[in-house]
Design a protein around this nucleic acid. Structure first.
Lengths: 180, 180
DNA sequence: CAGTATCCTGTCCGATACTG
DNA sequence: CAGTATCGGACAGGATACTG
């Protein structure tokens, strides 16, 4: 999408999608996590057209997920390495991978997470970093945060649950409370 | 993308992207988690053109993430509810949300995860479901799984680390081992 | 209210050719 | 090897009109 977060410019999901929503972007990041850093590696491993690779690489750099830095000066050559923000995308990729394995890999996983030391397969699960409690629904839910604007507040409950101004179209069919 | 997993048809990330890679798909799922189920709700909350909504809803139903079921018979009306596979997408959305809040919300989070009972903000972290250990890199890594084909095996290390047939283009610059 | 049908535009993307 | 330039096709997506 071009314009994107027309209605919910604040939504962190929409904002993330603006950076990595294009099809190739996530796959390029996947390759970066795999160890690729040079133009050629991305191109061969992905089978992406060079002009598209250039474009996606540029936007990823512009968005601060990859850093372009010279590894040779004569001739001038660059490699593309993950920034801290890019590195932080790893859990997202791992979560997506787990979801894909769960539902779209009837033959079993083609790739999977394992303990590097023992090789034991690991299964990703979300917990709260502070308490360690599993992040399940409806024990946890998504609510408006401190920076929420009026529109966001009207669409997401606020906490504490002071019967937030309900969205008329939704209040009827969200019995236990809505999330995400 | 149309054709998509040209080179890595096995990759669970690519397979996931085939289902939810279109821009609107994830946002529609976000709305579904928020409680939306009717055509009108999706349309109003997203500001999406009705024909696009129809298309995306159809693919999501076809892919088994949403279920279309009648809630009225005269006139015939349908609602779109999350299937089990759709519900399982919630951790993905929450992880993306956390990443977006981390890096693209300088003003603070507009929405956030909280404990439904206490309202205490929660911060998602990935752990292994079986051992509870934090899924960090490089303690954990992505390797070829049991269903990996030849190409996948050549691109991902296998475990135990019997010096997997290294990808010539990558072996040089992946010192500690590559992941994801 | 819950969509379907039609038309149009933008751009993602692939293919190919070219350059230092 | 690491890209840039150009061309064309397919389709996502928007706008609008229409229906029971």
């Amino acid at each position: 999408m071009h314009n994107s977060s027309l209605i919910n410019p604040q939504c962190p999901i929409a904002r993330s999608l603006e950076r990595v929503g294009e099809w190739w972007s996530m796959l390029i990041l996947r390759e970066a996590f795999l160890g690729a850093s040079r133009f050629d590696q991305f191109q061969k491993n992905l089978g992406i057209a060079p002009n598209m690779l250039t474009r996606r690489l540029q936007t990823l750099v512009a968005d601060g997920l990859l850093e372009k830095r010279p590894y040779s000066t004569r001739p001038l050559r660059h490699e593309y390495v993950l920034t801290a923000a890019g590195q932080d995308f790893r859990p997202v990729l791992w979560t997506i991978m787990a979801w894909g394995n769960q539902h779209f890999a009837p033959e079993g996983p083609a790739i999977q997470l394992v303990d590097s030391a023992t090789g034991a397969p690991a299964e990703p699960m979300l917990v709260d970093r502070h308490t360690g409690r599993p992040l399940t629904y409806p024990a946890f839910r998504v609510v408006a945060g401190p920076a929420a604007d009026a529109r966001t507040k009207s669409r997401y409950p606020t906490w504490p649950a002071t019967t937030p101004t309900p969205n008329p179209t939704e209040s009827a069919d969200a019995p236990t409370g809505a999330a995400a």
